[in-house]
Design a protein around this nucleic acid. Structure first.
Lengths: 244, 244
DNA sequence: GTATCCAACGTTGTATACAAAAGAGGTAAC
DNA sequence: GTTACCTCTTTTGTATACAACGTTGGATAC
């Protein structure tokens, strides 16, 4: 009855910047989910996470809502209550997700291929550099998954960033990390087929450099579609995670 | 110091269902924005809305975050503070938005065209009925905008609903109402060209009924692209709303 | 008359208190 | 032994309290 008179002294552990809790909570939770620290299928309890991250429930709650909206977390709606769990990774979901990204990036590729050639040149140079980077990693047998992922991500991000408006950019930014979950959880097994993806990238580069919008769009779509198939095979071998 | 001992008696006005405040606030706010009750460009004050709708700030806040994520509301980020305003309607935004929807529905149309013909038949029947409905309204000079909007919406929704997975469905459900804002604010002027849209719909139906996925996808994309152009002309005449 | 500083206010962000609903587990009845 | 009911616990949803920050307006000094 007296205790609640001084709520301000409640989080003495660390000095935290004001106005950043929600954002920070969101990012940390997303990272935990993407990296599998919070395994697919896990039940989520707001208070636990709040305690674990050192926030109160309010920003956690906001972060969870956003994570739900972006597909990292799903609500098991039991009437008016909604318990949440980390979204499972399934073959069907991967397939759909990759299709969507393929079409969104397809739109971006189309726009990029339509840019004036002066602007296109810079983009193409960057794309080529990323793709040669990938090729080198593919030859060297070290297979640093993080580095490969980063290059691949940069490749796609470059295409989108070159021409997309704010909406498409935002949409891509929210959808892409969800593909990252699949990447990271099944990465090891994907790396073998890196060569195929590199070849597909080549085609995309060539289409953009010719200014062929149709081919560029198609190329991206094919890249993602094949990616989904490669993933499918891996999932068949290793089994799905977080769904039962 | 004593007052806060009985917060529960604070909303005596109406008996409200538990666990629905956030959802209800979101829907009502979205409706207000889509219908223009909250004009584009308006500054948003949480406490005002809370008072107006009879909730506390908590669910309003959640609803606003979601509205922001979905593009109805934008944050004017001033350092760590973020004041919000109702997203303005601009020509560029309309263009990008319509492109995105075109591509998402394009994916759906492609999938729908690939369904086994038994399932397709039902879908086609519904599409035809909606489109004849539109044609009738176009002939009759009454131009009930709501009715037209509803039929057009149903047409597109049918295509998506016939084949899309949960992710695509969800994405469509969140993106589509944003197009509705443009529709409603500029409706009167769009109705003249209804005939063109109907013709485009015809092509889409025929493509789906032939099972021609490419043509179906293209048809939808063209429909939205032309829609954006029709809208552009209207905006040129009437001026943008909420941007200065 | 203008520019600068200070104070009061408005608005947001976070923490906490409390209530309702769902779920688990045990006990009693058949 | 099984089922049904009741209670206790867990967890979510909402309201409110409070603090920090930005902004605005006025007052004062030049």
């Amino acid at each position: 009855m007296l205790a609640h008179r001084r709520p301000a002294a409640a989080h003495p552990k660390e000095e935290r910047e004001r106005g950043q809790s929600l954002h920070s909570a969101f990012q940390r939770l997303r990272e935990m989910i993407v990296n599998g620290k919070l395994a697919p299928g896990t039940w989520i309890i707001e208070a636990d996470l709040a305690a674990r991250l050192g926030f109160s429930r309010t920003p956690i709650r906001g972060a969870l809502h956003r994570l739900e909206r972006e597909g990292y977390v799903v609500a098991a709606s039991n009437g008016s209550k909604s318990r949440m769990l980390v979204a499972p990774l399934t073959k069907e979901d991967a397939h759909e997700l990759y299709s969507i990204i393929g079409h969104l990036e397809g739109l971006a590729a189309r726009l990029t291929a339509g840019l004036p050639s002066a602007e296109r040149a810079k983009t193409i140079a960057r794309l080529k550099s990323y793709n040669t980077g990938l090729a080198e990693l593919a030859r060297a047998r070290h297979a640093d998954a993080n580095r490969i992922f980063e290059l691949d991500l940069n490749f796609h991000r470059t295409i989108v960033g070159a021409s997309a408006g704010p909406r498409l950019l935002e949409l891509h930014k929210t959808v892409q990390p969800q593909a990252e979950r699949y990447w990271r959880l099944y990465a090891g097994a994907i790396l073998d087929e890196l060569g195929k993806s590199i070849a597909e990238h080549e085609k995309i580069i060539s289409a953009i450099s010719k200014g062929d919008a149709d081919a560029a769009e198609l190329g991206i779509q094919v890249n993602w579609q094949n990616g989904a198939q490669r993933l499918s095979r891996v999932i068949d071998n290793l089994g799905e995670r977080g769904s039962w």
